[in-house]
């Protein structure tokens, strides 16, 4: 059984078919990438997995069970964490607080015990903080712990968002363009982190990325999309040399298809 499976998923925005009959499966323990030109439907696929959008047809299975009957806020609890292409952090809260929100799915106290801050809530709080501090250490975020997001540079925000997703301790991590807008050094860090997330933490990663260099260095398998349709699936090398993929990129100019 695959960890995540999309079966003939189609999604339309009015007349536009953003995702057209796409099927693929992500196996446990791998790093899987979605690539394709702008507007190919990559983020839309993420948003369907997060249940922000409901497919027009087809099914999405996580650990063998359909998630289409779940509400968006039930997805994290299944063990699916994500980041956003346009960084969606909690601006008026500190880095630490943002990451602690990632622990929400592990909350076992309720509002009454929290109002009283019972010893149980305190013990839980220690547990949450321990987990978050691990993520902070892992991502070298100590200098920013207490800083408000609103004042942080772009690169740090990207990392914080990844940390917040890791705080969920998910089985599947969805990263939407983790390296976009980052410097070469920062991109290298991201590559190391993704390796560790896979090997040390044992988390399966599904990512969208334009930087083909990063994709070929960390990904096991790649799915290329264009105009919502599946073009090619295979190892990074296979996909990059696939004539249909080359054509899709050349046809739509730009992109670092190098």
């Amino acid at each position: 059984m695959s960890l995540l499976e999309l079966k003939n998923v189609t999604l339309k925005f009015g007349g536009l078919t953003a995702v057209n009959d796409v099927s693929f499966a992500v196996e446990e323990g791998e790093v899987f990438a979605l690539v394709g030109p702008n507007g190919a439907g990559k983020s839309t696929i993420f948003n369907m997995i997060s249940r922000f959008y409901t497919p027009y047809s087809g099914d999405i299975l996580f650990e063998g069970k359909s998630i289409l009957n779940k509400a968006p806020h039930e997805i994290a609890g299944l063990g699916i964490a994500r980041t956003f292409q346009n960084i969606e952090l909690f601006e008026q809260a500190s880095v630490l607080q943002n990451m602690l929100v990632g622990r929400y799915t592990h909350r076992r106290s309720n509002f009454l015990t929290e109002l009283l801050f019972t010893p149980f809530v305190r013990r839980e709080e220690h547990r949450h903080r321990e987990a978050v501090e691990k993520a902070i250490d892992f991502l070298d975020l100590q200098p920013y712990r207490e800083k408000l997001i609103a004042g942080l540079p772009y690169g740090v925000r990207k990392v914080v968002e990844m940390g917040r997703a890791l705080a969920i301790q998910p089985k599947l991590l969805l990263l939407d363009e983790p390296a976009s807008g980052l410097s070469v050094e920062e991109t290298q860090d991201v590559a190391f982190w993704i390796e560790d997330i896979k090997k040390v933490m044992g988390i399966t990663v599904l990512m969208v990325e334009h930087d083909m260099h990063l994709v070929s260095s960390v990904c096991d398998r790649v799915l290329a999309l264009a105009d919502g349709k599946k073009l090619a699936l295979g190892t990074p090398r296979e996909v990059q040399t696939d004539p249909r993929v080359v054509e899709a990129y050349l046809g739509s100019d730009e992109e670092e298809a190098a």
């Binding site: 994290a76 994500r82 969606e88 909690f90 008026q92 607080q97 929100v101 929290e114 917040r164």
Partner: peptide, 30 residues
């Protein structure tokens, strides 16, 4: 009571809902 809320998961959920409903949902917050 106010301080207790601020330092527990509910208080952080409030901040999450205030700042980004979309990612609050992605974090599992109803």
């Amino acid at each position: 009571a106010y301080r207790n809320i601020q330092r527990s998961p509910l208080g952080r959920a409030f901040a999450a809902v205030r700042d980004s409903e979309i990612s609050a949902q992605a974090m599992g917050i109803n």
